[in-house]
Design a protein around this nucleic acid. Structure first.
Lengths: 250, 250
DNA sequence: ATACAGGATTAACATGGGTCAAAGACAGGC
DNA sequence: GCCTGTCTTTGACCCATGTTAATCCTGTAT
């Protein structure tokens, strides 16, 4: 029962931008004046679908999403998870037809902003445009790491790595503490994210529990030994390019 | 013996930007005035390395590169190939420490541009900044497809898919005709790109040859039946977001 | 309480692709 | 023509992960 409907506000967007790019007061103000339409949406709903041609993008104000692509034969690959502050389909501002679908993992509060308003803001404020560009570059770095994860790590370290990423990113937006967080992600979804089967996800989880690498209580994940999980997952958070480095999930 | 040292010029950069974003005369002129340092470099050289903090970025004027990451244990994953017009480390403009290495596959002519000059141009011309941003978004789409390829396709269609992508992208820059192109990529490199072993790359190639799906003469790739290769590779070029769609490698 | 549905777990068996190691093929340099 | 280094090819064997399909949970609705 994570996110109660959220008071309408832009703060997750601004916090996210500021977490990777310093803003002036004027710029913050310009962002606050963006016309934004806040919408609540249930879990397990597609917000946008592959092939859509949206006229607006959205930011996650609360809740979590996943971004996925499907193959001809129906197999699905999740390529990213979204946390508050993320704008999973910002690409649609420039690329007319979407190559991905975005699905809610939990009930979400989403803030929709028209492409027109975004374009206008970017033309008026080159530094804000640069901040968005920078966000896209950071997202690209995460995709590259995801490729490495899926392409070169075995299932066990692969899972460890993705758990590390999730924990650090959730921590960065205040949704994880004490190496623990709520992960509303089913084993089937982990399977689609890691490029393995749900059965094998289950095997890996059990081994990790047996090894004392993780504990689970319902959807809650607890990491008893963060350093060891990072080591198993070959995890180095540099690629996330957070300004608040250091004790990320510490 | 691909690329002879190239007369210094910006045209690959401009052509690339224009292939995904229409430019005005003024904007083209501003790009032409960018101070650019042209350098020839041999094959199999690292242009930049993971961990570097470059003060300039570069465009490929001729030749091909690959972009890769390595794991702690030395395993390498190639996450992208670069063709003329690409700027494989444009991210360093915003992200101080590089998360990838860029290596030449052939002798290359590279055009280096300082971050200062790029920043200056982007602040003066929001539309050019937007064009660069758009390039980054397209690059992101290619990463997402790469994740799907490595995560969900078996080795045979996975190879077919990457061959399709290479052929279409080389065709878009005039380096492929008649479903045929020069591919200066070793089997070890394909292995690192696909997340399989070189031995298995070899098995797949032989099967593809036996199936009449591809022919090779030295480094030259010939595709006798383009439609069939696309089908085997589950390839749909939409994700490349080229303006010149349709008969891409036709 | 009972029934249901989505998720988690198990087990038995199959296989794509990994590993290792040796041998061939080819190109460039002398 | 010969040497050397880099690619490619081959073969035997093995294991991480896929497949299938049944069973077991747990929370929620009736």
């Amino acid at each position: 029962m994570l996110p109660a409907p959220f008071p309408a506000n832009h703060s997750p967007i601004i916090r996210k931008l500021e977490s990777i790019f310093p803003l002036t007061d004027d710029e913050r103000q310009a962002l606050l004046e963006l016309p934004i339409q806040v919408t609540a949406i249930k879990e397990d709903q597609d917000v946008v679908r592959e092939g859509d041609r949206p006229s607006r993008s959205f930011a996650i104000l609360s809740g979590m999403t996943c971004t996925s692509k499907v193959m001809g034969d129906g197999k699905r690959q999740i390529v990213a998870f979204g946390v508050p502050g993320d704008m999973p389909d910002i690409q649609s501002l420039h690329l007319k037809v979407l190559d991905i679908s975005v699905t809610t993992l939990t009930p979400c509060s989403l803030g929709f902003i028209t492409h027109e308003a975004l374009w206008d803001l970017c033309l008026r404020s080159p530094r804000i445009a640069a901040a968005f560009w920078r966000e896209t570059l950071v997202e690209g770095a995460a995709f590259r790491e995801w490729i490495l994860n899926v392409g070169r790590r075995e299932a066990y370290p692969r899972m460890a790595h993705i758990l590390c990423e999730l924990l650090v990113r959730l921590h960065a937006v205040g949704l994880a503490e004490d190496h623990s967080c709520d992960l509303p992600i089913t084993q089937v979804e982990f399977a689609d994210a890691l490029g393995i089967t749900a059965v094998h996800v289950n095997r890996v989880f059990q081994q990790m529990r047996a090894d004392g690498l993780i504990e689970t209580r319902g959807t809650r994940l607890i990491v008893p030994d963060w350093e060891r999980l990072k080591e198993v997952g070959d995890f180095d958070e540099t690629y996330l390019h957070l300004l608040t480095t250091g004790g990320a999930a510490a």
